[in-house]
């Protein structure tokens, strides 16, 4: 390309916590190559697997203490005319190498003393740790085609890593029709994590997600049998069920349950996904506070995890998209699911 050497780098960002970046990028660590798209508001990393699963982590501007994005001047002879001005071509890097780099000093938190530095008197107010100077991470991307430079500094040691950038391996995300949602459920991530853990014990092949007007049902079947986790949209489902069993005159209470948002358009939403893909999200499941589960009219599943930042408040988001399995593939258990919703009818 025709970037002059004296022109400012496309991207120059400084973060005081490599750990923070690591924790977010770890969530999409299921693939080896990540596609990077620097933008005005942050850096977007995306990873895909077999074109049916995609994970995206967005490192927002706020995660960095300084963030400068200078898009190269669009040359008149640029072939790519569809590109809007102010955009940079995405590039791809080895995600495994990036993750390795970010934890090159280990993942020790500030408060955690290293075993060889137990002396409490040795840490004065001007130590690197106390000043928050430890673990400074600089990212630089000079020009299109140049390596992504990562400089990590800790306690006077600085490490410079240059990651080769590649042409992007794919050029479009899995399409997700935001305006044609089949379901939208927001819940605490720990509940979903718990459910996925329960289901994974049977070592299943598929995961079926089913949402009716009252239930969210996750089910999976394996060699030893099947497991179903059922969330009721109302908190008092159990009491209601008991009351229904006790007598018909019990008044059902409509409490807000553990599902904070529960919208199902149409009769129900029911799709199957590959379980191993869903369980790729487990790092995000563990660290997230909330998860938004959305499915569009085509059955594409979007899991959006809200992860609290380590410092300075705020949240970051990690997104996943899954393409559903063709129907009739994961539907053997349908008749077993049938009786679950029975108490409600």
């Amino acid at each position: 390309m025709s970037t002059q050497p004296e022109s400012p780098p496309i991207l120059s960002a400084v973060s005081s916590s490599a750990r923070q970046l690591f924790l977010l990028l770890r969530c999409i660590g299921f693939g080896s190559k990540a596609q990077v798209q620097p933008t005005e508001d942050g850096i977007r990393f995306s990873v895909e697997e077999s074109s049916v699963m995609e994970g995206m982590a967005f490192l927002g501007k706020t995660l960095f203490s300084s963030f400068q994005f200078t898009p190269p001047q669009v040359q008149p002879d640029t072939v790519d005319t569809t590109q809007e001005s102010g955009d940079v071509d995405p590039f791809s890097i080895s995600l495994a190498a990036l993750l390795e780099t970010l934890q090159i000093f280990g993942l020790s938190e500030l408060s955690k003393p290293t075993p060889w530095n137990r002396d409490p008197y040795n840490r004065d107010a001007f130590s690197a740790q106390a000043l928050g100077l430890s673990g400074i991470c600089r990212l630089r991307y000079d020009s299109v085609g140049s390596p992504l430079v990562i400089i990590l500094e800790e306690a006077g040691i600085s490490t410079t890593c240059k990651l080769v950038t590649y042409e992007p391996a794919y050029d479009s995300d899995i399409p997700f029709a935001r305006l044609e949602l089949g379901m939208k459920i927001i819940m605490q991530a720990s509940y979903l994590a718990d459910a996925i853990t329960e289901l994974s014990t049977s070592n299943p092949e598929h995961l079926t997600i089913r949402a009716t007007d009252t239930f969210l049902i996750l089910s999976a079947s394996g060699d030893h049998g099947s497991a179903v986790v059922q969330f009721h949209r109302d908190n008092k489902a159990v009491q209601e069920n008991d009351a229904l069993a006790a007598g018909p005159n019990a008044v059902p209470k409509r409490n807000r349950g553990i599902l904070e948002t529960f919208q199902v358009s149409g009769e129900s939403f029911s799709q199957s996904y590959k379980f191993s893909h869903i369980s790729n999200t487990k790092k995000a499941l563990q660290s997230a506070i909330k998860v938004s589960i959305r499915g569009d009219s085509q059955g594409v599943l979007s899991l959006q995890f809200m992860i609290e930042n380590l410092e300075g408040g705020g949240v970051s988001f990690v997104d996943y998209r899954f393409i559903p399995l063709v129907r009739d593939e994961g539907y053997e258990e349908d008749e077993e699911l049938g009786d679950i919703g029975a108490p409600e009818s």
Binding site: Y191, D194, A195, E198, S202, S221, H224, G225, S226, A227, V228, V229, Q230, F231, H232, D234, N235, K236, A237, V238, G257, I258, E336, I340
Partner: peptide, 14 residues
């Protein structure tokens, strides 16, 4: 397995 918050985990084992 019936949880206090309304989550029901059903296992069917052969």
């Amino acid at each position: 397995n019936i949880c206090s918050n309304g989550v029901i985990k059903t296992f069917r084992l052969t």
